[in-house]
Design a protein around this nucleic acid. Structure first.
Lengths: 112, 112
DNA sequence: TCCATTAGTCACTTTTAGGTTACCACTATT
DNA sequence: AATAGTGGTAACCTAAAAGTGACTAATGGA
């Protein structure tokens, strides 16, 4: 578990490996501040397929960023939330978000 | 130019698209604070092939994050540097780096 | 009895990313 | 005449990522 962290040499590369890829940032973003069921996440990110979503969730869990809680119910219920490590990443995500918003606003005002 | 910025709807997704992929963060990191020639970048990131490096640099330039300056000399000389937009990303990168360092230190101290 | 529900998995196909090798342009140097 | 030096590109190939559609388990309700 958490091999990406333990085996890393360069912290930037490691961080990129943890949150890189096309979906992980977005998934973390949707878990930021909320516990969500699998189906909820899928609904909020319509362009991801369920197969890939479950793969990415599994990786995020292996990397210690999220927690998966499975209830023994029928129909099944599984809830995902940020772990302590995932929580610690939130300021970074918000920083990225602010930067994105500013960049988009700037691009638009320059267009006029 | 800068289509990723202009066509984006979600700022997090946009940011992820700009700096995502296996190499872009690392390239930006090596340009942070330095103007560098193509060969220098290649030397600092030995595991990237020249083909992929030139592709990624082209994309970063198209996205407005870096500036490519070509000198009319023989042998050729091309210098890459962060644009104003790329500079504005530096605090975000440093935030990621700090988080990475802390996470690595924590993982190691917990191991003992 | 049969259907809906949920969180997946399995097998298969397509798309994308990345790697490898060879090659070019132009000049100065040997 | 040959070579080094630099920043690439073109053609080709492989591996990884992602998409698709069918399928499952166990129960409550119509």
């Amino acid at each position: 578990m958490e091999n990406k962290v333990e085996n890393a040499t360069c912290p930037v590369t490691m961080t990129a490996n943890l949150i890189g890829g096309r979906w992980k940032l977005i998934i973390l973003y949707h878990l930021s501040g909320h516990t969500r069921r699998f189906g909820e996440i899928a609904a909020r990110i319509p362009s991801i397929s369920r197969k890939v979503l479950s793969q990415q969730l599994k990786e995020l869990e292996e990397d210690g960023l999220i927690i998966r809680q499975q209830f023994k119910e029928i129909p099944p219920r599984v809830e995902y939330s940020l772990s302590e490590l995932g929580e610690s990443l939130k300021p970074v995500l918000h920083h990225m978000e602010s930067w994105g918003i500013e960049t988009m606003l700037n691009a638009r005002s320059k267009k006029v």
